[in-house]
Structures are given as C-alpha cells and as structure tokens.
Design a protein around this nucleic acid. Structure first.
Length: 485
RNA sequence: CGGGGCGUGGCGCAGGCCGGUAGCGCGCCUGGUUUGGGACCAGGAGGUCGCCGGUUCAAAUCCGGCCGCCCCGACCA
C-alpha cells in the first residue's frame, strides 16, 4: 500500500516495481477501477473506448473473412460441459454455477459460460445437416466468467469481455486453414493497430486449450520481459462435433462429423497495450486505438488573448475533426497549461497541440508528441501535420516494441543459458526441444519459464537448433520459453 | 490455500508504544488575481478511524475475534 511514488502526483516507476506501475497507470489513467466484487473490475469510459476501437477493427476483419456475429446464452446446462472429457476437466475448477432461480432450486444447475463451445455445438447439431450447410463461420462478442485464484486488472479477472469465434467445416484441411487464417488476423491487428509485435506458433499439448487438437497462439513480450498470451486460435478436430453429434451428409452421401475451430481475444489486450507502450509518465496509446488522438491546449496571458486563442483552438479542432481525427480542446480555465500537459500525458494522448498568442499571431500551432519532441506547424496544414505525426507515432511504437523484443530474445540457448537468462529477468529464449513432457515440466519447475510457442517458420532460428536445450538429445522442434502472465 | 503488506474525509498519509474525543498534503466548493511544463491569496465543506466484542470514567490508540483489499506463489485468456 505505502508504495514509494516517483513524485507526489506521479506514478511508481517501472524499474522500481513493475506491477505497481501497471496498477498505477490503469487506475490513474482511468482505464479501470476495482469493483466491490472481488476479482471483478469496472472498465471506465476511457478504457472501454479503447475496447470499442479494438472491437470495431477486429469486427471488420472478421467480417472481411466471412464471419457473422451471433449471440448465445450466458447460462449453459452443467451437463453440456461434461460431454467433452478434456474440456470439463480443464474448466471445472473455474466454473461459477447457478443453483437457484426464481427462489427455487434448479433441476439442473446452470454454469455461467467460461467459453461457449458446448452450447454452440449443441445448436450446430440442430442447424447442420448437409455439406451444403458448411462452413458455418460464427463470432460472438460476450462476457465470460472464470473463477480465477488470483486476478489482475485487465490481465486476469473473474469476468472479462472477449470475442469468441466458432466455425464448422466439412474437412480437416479447411478447419486447419481457418485456424491459421484467424491467427494471421490476430497478428495483423496486434501489430497494425496495437503496435504490439507478436510471435506466432503452436502450443505444446501441456499448454493447449482444453478440448483442442492443436492451439495456435500470438505471444507478446511485455516491458518486464514476461510473455503475454494475447490471442489463441484452436483447431478442435472433431472433438466437439462427436461430443454433440454435429454430423453432416457429404456429397458422396456418407455421414461425417464436422471439423471445427474456435478462437478468441479479450480485454486482456488492453493490459498488453499498457505494458507494451506505457512509460514512467503513464499510458502511451497507439494512435489507431487512442480514445483521444489529439488534445488542443489553449494558452493565454490576458482576457484580450483568451478570445482569439480559444477561437483559433476551436478552428483547429473543427478542421481536425472534419478530417476524421478524434480531438478535443481542453478549455478548462481552472488548470494551467502545464498541468494539462501532465494530465493528458498520463492518459496517453499521442499528440498535443499548444495554441498561444504567439502562435495565433504567426498562424501556427505547436505540435508535441507523447513519444517526445515539439515542433511548430502552420495552421493552414494542421490536418496533414497531425495525420503524419499520428502515423509516425504508430510506426515508431511498433518499431520500438519490436526492437525491445529482439533485444530481449536469446537464440540457441543451452541448459545453463536458459536457467541464467530466466533468473536474470528473462525474455524470449529460443532453443531446441526434444518434445518430451518430462523436459517441459522440469524446465518449468527449475526456471519458471514455460514454452510459449513452437514458433512458426518465420520466427525460427537459422540454423535450426540440433539438440534439446535441456536434455541434449536430438531436437524435434524449436521452442520459445519465457516466464508468462 | 501459503507468504508479505495494508485498512483513519475523494486520494496519499501522520497519530497508535505512552488511552483524554482526529490532523497534514493533494483534491473539492466560493470569491479574486493568474495561465508558453504540475499557479497564488482568502474563506469554506467534508471523517461511524474496516466490523464485532472486551478492558477502562474514557479506545483510532490496549486485548480477543472476524471481514476486506493489494502484492508474491500454486490455477489460467
């Protein structure tokens, strides 16, 4: 509680205590707050706006790839979960169960969805008869509940918001392709909108989704060198189809079970955004997801100035807004310009425009970037200047994050290096893996690092590692280890 | 569940050992002067000291019990 603060009005520095820094940023930038219910959070307007912008971008990408939104119920009959053996085993400890309704005990308890595979496949079994009904490409935006032991704002809360895609296909190849397509969509969103670079690859059996044949993942590296699983896409094979009897008649007239996928990203991404770009001043929001992209701060020395300055600020605001920029004039009179700078920097606004009497006289405004640097720009071309600055900031954030990740990656690790690297604070450690669960478990116990992914080809090392980083036997694949959130 | 920390105006904290009826900074409200990197002056509002019980003439303070929150670990998007 009594955490040393960098300044009276400031936040804990990252170097001093990263977890405290994260909480400070989330709370003080007003993204979220703790709720009266343990483990649950309130997403405040500033945080929810980021989520809305994420939703819009992702939803467009899903639609472009042929998906449709639908909505399935929050409550799922308890027996549904039990139908898929691994699935029930994986989720049972995390379920919230409703036993009473309308003042009476229910005949069958209802679980609050931890994910919706079961109820969706129960419905698909009704809707799908023929190969002509396939593929089914669904997505839903929803809340889910998982009773976590330990929670953290955005990163892990009892209830969270996400999207879950569920698709059914006639062939394994098509379902596999779907799972990979979505992984690419996620990666594109994370890099192009969030400016958060990710490694993609496959999860080991120990790390995969309960009920999946294969799980693919996007993994990002946070500033404290811990990995964040940012999005997952699962090839479910026929596991759920068999459990729920989702059969279709093929063109040849045979009966077969559908091949399916599921995939999701959640409000956890907001936590990833904070921990990828934030600094000791506060939030740094990538322009494409910034609730407010530009704040205009008027500066005046006398009443005679204030009229013309405010008028100039309004004209700039109008011009930018007409150009599609999310902008506001901070015309509060009770706060000095300097105080407003700190206020908006904490909240992550990428660009600030300062407008004072001198600027008005010279037909200019001062453009200050959240990432550093101030330059005067002509009012006449302010929209172009702002657009260019926002694009540059967006690109710069991605580049900086990618550089940081590479600077905190180590290739071709052996046993000692892996151990030392994780003890020294870690990052992504690439090395050979023999594929044995024994090595995987032992590494986790000794180093607290888990295999984040078996990386996709473009992330693999050249030359490929020949032997297992741990046991030294022949490597069957390359793996990337990290301590994770 | 184990380990650590903490509950006192909205926020951050002091007071607690040595019981005597609550204070500081920030914020907030009113008025005025201000405004190119966290303004200043004056006045003002705001607290069942986490909860329950005990000791005492008297409890924020001492004793017992309980509750909650945060951080670290076991579980996980």
């Amino acid at each position: 509680m009594a955490k040393e603060q960098t300044a009276e009005k400031g936040i804990t520095s990252r170097a001093e205590d990263f977890a405290a820094w994260y909480n400070d940023v989330v709370l003080k930038a007003e993204l979220a707050d703790y709720s009266p219910v343990r483990g649950c959070m309130v997403i405040r307007p500033r945080g929810y706006r980021i989520w809305e912008l994420m939703q819009r971008a992702l939803d467009d990408l899903f639609k472009e790839t042929g998906h449709e939104n639908a909505y399935f119920p929050l409550f799922i009959p308890q027996s549904f979960l039990a139908r898929e053996a691994e699935h029930v085993e994986g989720f049972s400890p995390q379920l919230a169960v409703v036993t009473h309704g309308g003042g009476k005990e229910l005949e069958e308890p209802l679980v609050v969805r931890p994910t919706s595979e079961t109820i969706i496949y129960a419905m698909l079994s009704k809707w799908i008869q023929s190969y002509r009904d396939l593929p089914v490409l669904l997505n839903q935006w929803a809340n889910v509940v998982r009773w976590e032991m330990r929670t953290r704002l955005f990163l892990r809360t009892t209830e969270f918001l996400w999207q879950e895609g569920h698709t059914a296909h006639a062939t394994a190849e098509e379902a596999e392709a779907e799972a990979r397509t979505i992984l690419g969509v996620y990666r594109r969103f994370m890099e192009e909108w969030m400016a958060m670079p990710v490694l993609t690859g496959q999860k080991t059996d120990a790390e995969k989704f309960a009920g999946a044949v294969r799980t693919y993942s996007c993994e990002a590296l946070m500033q404290d060198n811990r990995a964040l699983q940012a999005g997952t896409s699962h090839f479910l094979g026929q596991n759920f189809a068999r459990a729920f009897g989702v059969q279709f008649q093929t063109a040849q007239g045979d009966m077969d079970y559908v091949w399916s996928t599921s995939w999701g990203v959640s409000t956890r991404l907001i936590g990833g955004l904070v921990m990828t770009h934030g600094d000791d001043v506060g939030l740094v929001c990538p322009p494409r997801l910034a609730p407010l992209q530009v704040v205009v701060v008027p500066i005046w020395k006398s009443d005679t100035d204030s009229g013309s300055v405010l008028e100039a600020a309004r004209r700039v605001e109008d011009a930018l807004r007409a150009g599609g920029i999310r902008v506001n004039v901070d015309d509060r009179e009770s706060m000095t310009p300097g105080a407003k700078y700190y206020y908006w920097e904490l909240r992550g606004v990428p660009v600030r425009l300062e407008v004072g009497p001198r600027d008005v006289a010279q037909g200019q405004v001062v453009l200050a970037r959240r990432t550093g640097g101030k330059v005067p720009v002509p009012v006449a071309s302010v929209l172009e200047s702002v657009k260019a600055a926002l694009e540059e900031i967006q690109a710069e954030l991605l580049r900086a994050a990618r550089e940081r990740r590479e600077a905190n990656s180590l290739r071709h690790v052996n046993r000692d290096q892996l151990t030392e690297y994780m003890e020294a604070g870690g990052g992504f450690a690439y090395g050979g893996f023999c594929g044995s669960p024994e090595c995987e478990v032992e590494i986790k116990e000794r180093t607290k690092a888990t295999i984040r992914v078996l990386p996709d080809p473009e992330f693999r090392s050249d030359p490929p590692p020949a032997s297992c980083a741990w046991c030294g036997k022949k490597a069957v694949t390359e793996a990337v280890w990290a301590r994770a959130y």
